[in-house]
Amino acid sequence: MTTTTEIKMCVEDLNVYYGSFHAIKDASLQVPENGVMALIGPSGCGKSTFIRALNRMHDLVPDVTVQGRVTLDGEDIYAKDVDPVTIRHRIGMVFQRPNPFPKSIFENVAYGPRIHGVRSRKRLLEIAERSLRHAALWDEVKDRLDKSALELSGGQQQRLCIARVLAVEPEVILMDEPASALDPIATSKIEDLIGDLKKDYTVVIVTHSMQQAARISDNTAFFLMGELIEIGPTRDIFFKPQDKRTEDYITGRYG
């Protein structure tokens, strides 16, 4: 079996500005298909800014400028004729704090398919069950699908948010510190889930926990003050970093 991996997303010379603040400086990297890429670095290094550029979330905020090329299967997602709505359909996102809608558990998972035109209740229920199973939440909620999602625990809410993303069948799933607001048990469930997801999806995850990056990712990119310092297989980044700054961070000499 050959090990040539397909490149799912490619970022070239990405620059992001908040007003006049230069938040991401000339970052370039490639995201291989069906793997987990972790983005690590100290707080304020730009990793969240970077990941939000991958599905055009910055479009929603005034005063943010994104320059450079980001491609999905070779197609520039920032090209003029590309609708960001279709991009976000193909590239889903899970946020730092669980953000279920104030609706029932079922309505949360059915939301995505509904807005993309699925009407049949039977079909929506099938999608909801499949997505909730995939997110390892089905057994905990199958008897109370019509209860408010806000009654769930934080960890359950976050898995619901992942199920909600899975329900629209994206190709790439971006996760912005998805476990940082959760306790260790909920965190380990999310990590197991990510390991399972990479069989079918390309996952990019921002994490402030190096242990987490080491446990779950195949590749790791290290950011510092808006610059992409080093990227490579996770094992290499942790055991033989090429850059002095990466080594300093890994060994705990940076915040």
Binding site: N55, M57, L60, R88, F95, N99, Y111, R114, I115, V165
Partner: peptide, 23 residues
Amino acid sequence: TFREGSMALGATKWQTIRRVVLP
């Protein structure tokens, strides 16, 4: 975060307002 969550699922602005924000 409700708006972001909806937009990140590929909803249009109007769908987000109509189905998440207004309710």
